[in-house]
């Protein structure tokens, strides 16, 4: 007997105390040297969902909306990114209405120095002012830009558009263009130097030629969202008769701004 035995006794007591503490406070399913955690793993795996992660499942009830969304600029923005967790909507019909759409749009589209330039951004004050984003933009099909202008010269290309822009060309046109022929492209796609053969009278008395395609809007749109107030058939700058029935929602689909 003596110091060594007494000291060893203390050591053993400490270890025993530690093991007892571990046994009392530590996970009950664990033996002394056991590391099987499957019980707790299962527990984590069994927790309920909030986000359904089933954008396509929405189609069974909201088919039309899903169809437009799938083809439009927000196709990679999940329904639940904007509408929030949908599990409860699917299981018990809880509403997914968006209270403040503008705040939502601004989250992703306000111009910020830290944002990658590839993200479309607007200076909210200048772009919209007090007008709600959704007054002009459909959240499920947001793009309002008209057909892109032709960025290249037409020399030697007129009548051959589909060679390059057909479905198998170097720069294929969008799917909704299927069936369009080279003759019609320039009625929508503006080109600075283009003179329409239809509106150019043959004969000696040459009238000023009318560029084909919808004219560019020469004025700012600020405070002018009610296009038909001025351009309706009875307005002071009436649109052509073939426009009858068109409402402000569609004007910008054809008429580009400056």
């Amino acid at each position: 007997m003596g110091y060594p035995v007494r000291a060893l006794g203390v050591l053993v007591a400490v270890i025993a105390l530690f093991l007892v503490a571990k046994w009392v406070a530590g996970p009950a399913y664990l033996g002394l040297f056991d590391t099987d955690r499957s019980q707790n793993v299962e527990l984590w795996a069994s927790k309920p969902l909030q986000y359904a992660d089933v954008d396509r499942e929405c189609a069974s009830c909201h088919g039309e909306r899903v169809e437009t969304w799938q083809k439009a600029a927000h196709q990679n923005v999940s329904c639940e990114s904007c509408h929030g967790p949908a599990e409860s909507h699917l299981s018990s019909g809880v509403s997914l209405a968006i209270e403040e759409p503008a705040e939502l749009c601004i989250r992703c589209h306000a111009a910020l120095a830290s944002r990658p330039v590839s993200q479309p951004q607007v200076n909210v004050e200048e772009h919209a002012g007090p007008i709600a984003c959704t007054a002009c933009h459909n959240p499920h099909q947001p793009s309002l830009a008209g057909p892109p202008t032709v960025p290249h010269s037409l020399e030697g290309r007129e009548g051959w558009c589909t060679v390059c822009h057909g479905a198998t060309g170097v720069k294929p046109f969008p799917e909704d263009h299927a069936g369009r022929t080279s003759g019609v492209c320039l009625t929508c796609h503006q080109s600075p130097g283009y003179v329409s053969p239809i509106s150019t009278p043959t004969g000696p008395s040459v009238e000023p030629t009318q560029p084909a395609g919808p004219p560019i809007i020469p004025h700012s749109l600020e405070g002018r969202s009610e296009c038909t107030a001025c351009h309706g058939l009875t307005g002071f700058k009436p649109f052509p008769a073939d426009h009858a029935g068109r409402t402000k929602e569609v004007c910008l689909a054809c008429h580009n701004q400056q």
């Binding site: 984590w44 795996a45 069994s46 927790k47 309920p48 969902l49 909030q50 986000y51 992660d53 927000h74 990679n76 923005v77 999940s78 639940e80 990114s81 967790p85 992703c108």
Partner: peptide
């Protein structure tokens, strides 16, 4: 609880 059901984590799903 999502990845073990074959779903993406919530943050991944909502990233636009």
């Amino acid at each position: 609880h999502r990845i073990t059901k074959g779903l993406r984590p919530a943050c991944v799903e909502v990233c636009p």
